[in-house]
Design a protein around this nucleic acid. Structure first.
Length: 362
DNA sequence: TACCCGTGGTA
DNA sequence: TTACCAAGGGT
């Protein structure tokens, strides 16, 4: 009598899929390369994981390559001026990540002899490394059996088990499922496989279930409505804030810039002088709040959407002499690209000086 | 715990 | 066009 085939474990199903369909990424060692003896560089894995926090692969790729070219090792990054790191990060968002990236590099260089800790707990203690990044680096770079949880994996797991409880309350349950699923032999590939599946097959909208290795075991597919998962708590609507930005230009083509405080919104980044951003404009004319008296001309409005509010910025321009500034400096328009200017500030400056920045690369 | 923290792509 | 949301962390 033939032995009945037992169903393949979930990890086996998705690892077989990953071996055939994994994405090629600049920081990734493919399964075939790993078989040939190549191992992941912890610095590359850490750098990519921090950049990938709430950020798409597409957006990260050019920044990852730029950082590796500027700072090939964690010791190079640790030795770099923080201003250079902020300028290189400009445009990627969530700028506390850049400040913590620098702190973490310094801790690894000074406290660990330039080597990253090779355990989840050791990594978790470093600046900018939370539960997700600690588990991901431990699993991918050091082959530790760490359970990696991110937005992709939450979606895959919530569908696999048709979890009705809403996020974020259901996170502990999902984590328990991932702990069960994570295999001891290829924990890093398993995590990357789950994330690749979430990014390419088990997508938020219109998942391609026909191509999914979990199709025959997925409870959400069996219910014919995978898009119902993950169930999430209702979110609040975004308030609107308003403010004014002042672009002062000298006849020599210099713009007055300031540096924002090191904490909070756009912390440590460069800006043009602005008013406070409040729920409504305070009384009086806006130009009363300009950095100095001048013939300020209105030149339109910039709208920029942050995570938790929408900003409507009235932009004013003035041609002025090189007024002395106590808390700022005059920067040639031609070197604005090297500044740590967040996107909202580039929008404001472009509104006042249309040719301030080179057109974006195609 | 709940809130704060950017940006750009997609449907 | 609006809404969603992407390899989350800090406080």
């Amino acid at each position: 009598m033939m032995l009945q085939n037992s169903p393949k474990p979930h990890a086996e199903l998705i690892l077989a899929w990953y071996d055939r369909h994994h994405r090629e990424l600049p920081w990734r060692v493919s399964p075939s390369s790993a078989k040939a003896g190549k191992s992941a560089d912890p610095y590359h894995i850490w750098l990519s994981e921090v950049m990938l926090q709430q950020t798409t692969v597409q957006a990260v790729k050019p920044y990852f390559n730029k950082f590796l070219s500027l700072w090939p090792s964690v010791n190079d990054l640790a030795a770099a001026p923080v201003e250079d790191v902020m300028a290189a990060w400009a445009g990627l968002g969530y700028y506390a990540r850049a400040r913590n990236l620098k702190k973490c590099a310094e801790a690894v260089a000074a406290g660990h002899g330039g080597k990253f800790p090779d355990t989840e707990a050791g990594l978790r203690a470093l600046p900018g490394i939370g539960d997700y990044t600690a588990a991901a680096v431990a699993a991918i770079a050091f082959k530790r059996q760490a359970a990696v949880m991110d937005g992709n994996i939450e979606r895959v797991v919530s569908r696999l088990y048709a979890i009705d409880a809403p996020l974020p309350g259901s996170k502990p349950l999902m984590k328990a499922k991932v702990v069960e699923l994570t295999p001891p032999d290829r924990p890093g590939d398993f995590a990357q496989a789950m994330m690749d599946l979430g990014a390419t097959i088990c997508t938020p909208k219109r998942p391609t279930c026909a191509l999914c290795p979990f199709r025959d075991v997925c409870l959400a597919f069996a219910e014919h409505d995978p898009e119902r998962f993950p169930v999430k708590a209702a979110k609040k609507e975004k308030p609107v804030r308003q403010g004014a930005a002042f672009v002062a230009v000298t006849p020599d083509g210099e713009v007055l810039l300031r540096r924002r405080v090191n904490s909070g919104l756009l912390g440590g980044m460069t800006e043009v002088p602005t008013t406070a951003w409040t729920s409504r404009l305070d009384g009086g004319t806006t130009t009363q709040h300009a950095p100095f008296a001048a013939a300020w001309e209105p030149c339109g409005t910039v709208v920029h959407v942050f995570t938790h509010f929408e900003l409507r910025l009235s932009v004013f321009r003035a041609r002025t002499s090189r007024v002395e500034s106590t808390d700022g400096w005059w920067e040639p328009v031609t070197s604005l690209d090297a500044q740590a200017l967040p996107t909202v500030m580039k929008k404001a400056i472009s509104q006042a000086v249309p040719l301030a920045f080179a057109p974006a690369k195609p």
